[in-house]
Amino acid sequence: MRNLDKNRPVCPQICELLCVDIVNGVYDAERRLPAVRELAAGWGVNPNTVQKALDTLEEQGLLHSVRGSGWYVREDISRAREVLQELRIEKIREFFAVMESLGLSPEETCEFVKEWYHE
């Protein structure tokens, strides 16, 4: 419910949220993530989905799990930065594609965004 888009699969959205939090250093102090259930309750989503998202992030090298203890953020967050970068680029590509269908080329879109934003 909170901050999540119901029209898109939830799992990637949770990956994105966690990725941003990791890069922003939300979990720096302990490096340990809250329990799956807590995370799920906080976002109001299915615990199995959160589990899947954590598994994905582990595969991507952002997290590692310790048996019987939980999930930890990897010391080196450069991987997280990369993943986040990829996500951002992907979104921009999608955005460009949408704008293209509305008659703006990527360059024109950049110009347009700058002008519009300064207003």
Partner: peptide, 30 residues
């Protein structure tokens, strides 16, 4: 209600929730 369900959920169990109010609960469902 929703957070109680999530907080008490254990991965070996299943939960069957009947409802006609879908938007409130759909994010919890598999």
């Amino acid at each position: 209600v929703i957070s109680t369900i999530i907080n008490n959920y254990n991965p070996e169990a299943s939960v069957l929730i009947s409802t006609h109010l879908i938007s409130d609960i759909e994010q919890v469902l598999d």
